[in-house]
Simulated scan of single mutants.
Amino acid sequence: MTFKVNETSCSMDDTAVRGARRVPEVVIGCLLSVAALAVGMVLMSAARAGEAWGWFSKDASGFFTGLQFVVATAQAALFIYQLRLIRVSLEDAKVVSAAATRQARVAEDTLTKIERPYVFVYNVSSLKIDHWEYEGEAGTTLSVKYSVANYGKLPAVIEHMQVSLSVHDEPLPPANYDYNHPLAVSAVLVPGEPRNDLYEGLPWDQVIIDPYQGDAADLGGKELFFWVIIRYRGTFSGGHVTRACWRHDERTGQFIEFNGGPEHNSQT
């Protein structure tokens, strides 16, 4: 459902109304001029005959001609007054129309914000250190698992996604997701549908092995960040972006939200 107001047609209609309401004024002015000229000619002709007052007072045609002129003048004055009232009412209608236009825009914007998908990234696990061996080679990987869900009212279509772990002083721009990522394979998120246990890893060989307290990653004084950027669209809207960034807390082993600004954590 959308609300649209054709402002161009409204302005054209206002112009047409202003032009139309000037036409009766011109016509009435012409009629008054003709009536005044006619009465003047009659008076002049009667005056020449020396019977001007007698023509008005004794002749019925003169009396009714004068009365007709007075009535026409009164009607013209009433018409002009009525046109002025119409002009004032049109100005009021213009103000009401502008208010209705603003209200329609607010309603449309509100409907767009409500009837759309909202994709969230949440449930980030603690950091895990995975040891692996393959064909005689061994290594370690830092990994996390996370969830993505659509909590809007309409389905979301994932158009592009960036996700990665990075070790640096500031979060590095995340890399594009792989072609076999679950959100690339199945890009439609229906309302209320969660995608759990999504995996992201970072090869990292600098690991302190401690069989008693658990292995720990040696970050060399840097910070470990997990950053996700998801671009998606809805059924009737597009250009939506979800940004979510976390920083690893070495004391607790958990990821906490990184307060870096809207470029790191935001919903659009």
Rank of each mutant, 00 (worst) to 15 (best):
V119N: 00
R105Q: 10
V27A: 07
A100K: 09
A138V: 04
P174A: 06
F79C: 13
S9R: 14
V27N: 02
V88L: 02
H160D: 15
M12Q: 13
G29M: 02
L224M: 06
K4E: 15
W53T: 08
A72E: 01
Q206R: 15
S237E: 10
A20N: 07
V96H: 12
D205A: 13
S9V: 06
L172N: 07
N265R: 07
P155G: 03
I256N: 07
Q162A: 12
N196R: 13
D59Q: 07
P262S: 11
D14H: 11
S125L: 07
L111K: 11
G136H: 12
M1Q: 14
E250V: 08
N259V: 05
R243V: 00
M1N: 07
F69C: 10
K113A: 13
T101A: 15
K222Y: 05
E170L: 09
A46S: 11
G260I: 04
Y199S: 05
T140P: 06
Q75M: 06
R84A: 05
N196M: 11
G220M: 06
P194T: 02
V241W: 00
S126N: 11
D169H: 07
T73V: 06
L198R: 01
E170G: 09
R233H: 09
V148T: 01
A104T: 00
R87K: 13
M161N: 00
R87I: 00
A76D: 00
V96W: 05
A47D: 10
Q103D: 11
S237I: 03
L224I: 02
P174H: 07
V228P: 03
K94M: 08
V119Y: 00
Q75Y: 10
G201D: 10
V71M: 13
Y199M: 05
T141G: 02
L83W: 04
H264Q: 06
A93N: 14
Q68V: 04
R105N: 13
S147R: 03
L198Q: 05
W53C: 06
E223M: 07
A60P: 04
H168Q: 08
F64E: 11
L224S: 10
T8N: 13
G239Y: 12
R251W: 13
W55Q: 04
Q82H: 08
A72P: 00
S61M: 10
R251T: 08
T73S: 15
T140C: 13
Y122A: 02
S143C: 08
W53R: 05
T73Y: 09
H248C: 04
R251Q: 14
K153P: 08
W55H: 10
E159P: 02
P155S: 02
H168G: 11
A216L: 01
V188G: 07
S97V: 01
V190C: 14
P182Y: 01
L224Q: 02
V71I: 15
I28V: 12
K145N: 11
Q254C: 12
S89A: 12
D205P: 11
E263C: 10
E108A: 15
S126V: 03
F56Y: 11
V34Q: 11
Q213M: 09
V157Y: 03
K145M: 03
A149T: 03
A184D: 12
T140R: 13
D218G: 04
E193Y: 09
G54T: 09
